[in-house]
């Protein structure tokens, strides 16, 4: 193999900052019921929806370890899990979230990437 000159190697290394980070694909999450994989440590917060702040666009989830907060933004997906009623899951919005419901939240820091709320019969 021809030896790569240092400058060229350094230049190519700039690719490092330009390639994307790996990530999970969120879209099929819509169809995975809340709590379907309870033993899977996937960086999600799971528990009961404690409160919804419509003005601040944030929620608090009561988990087995205490209260966890998530901030909602333009890109946060909200899904309503109706699979226990054998009904199709729906896209939802902040106004659909109800305190007391079983919920699962994927976060990046405090930012909510997606929220799934179980809709009971």
């Amino acid at each position: 193999m021809q030896k790569i000159r240092t400058d060229k190697a350094l230049a190519l290394a700039t690719c490092l900052v330009l390639v994307s980070t790996a990530g999970a694909h969120p879209m099929t999450e819509k169809y995975i019921p809340v709590g379907a994989y309870p033993n899977w440590d996937r960086g999600t917060v799971r528990g009961t929806l404690e409160s919804v702040d419509q003005a601040e666009k944030s929620i608090v989830v009561r988990t087995s370890k205490g209260l966890e907060r998530a901030i909602l933004g333009e890109t946060t997906k909200i899904w309503l899990d109706r699979s226990s009623m054998r009904k199709v899951n729906l896209d939802g919005s902040l106004s659909d979230l109800r305190a007391g419901q079983e919920i699962e939240v994927r976060r990046d820091g405090e930012y909510g990437l997606w929220i799934k709320m179980k809709v009971a019969p």
Binding site: S20, A22, G23, A24, H25, T28, E29, I32, W40, R42
Partner: peptide, 11 residues
């Protein structure tokens, strides 16, 4: 997957 993000959950 083809775009490196084919898996849900933890990818």
């Amino acid at each position: 997957g083809w775009s490196g993000d084919g898996a849900p959950i933890d990818g």
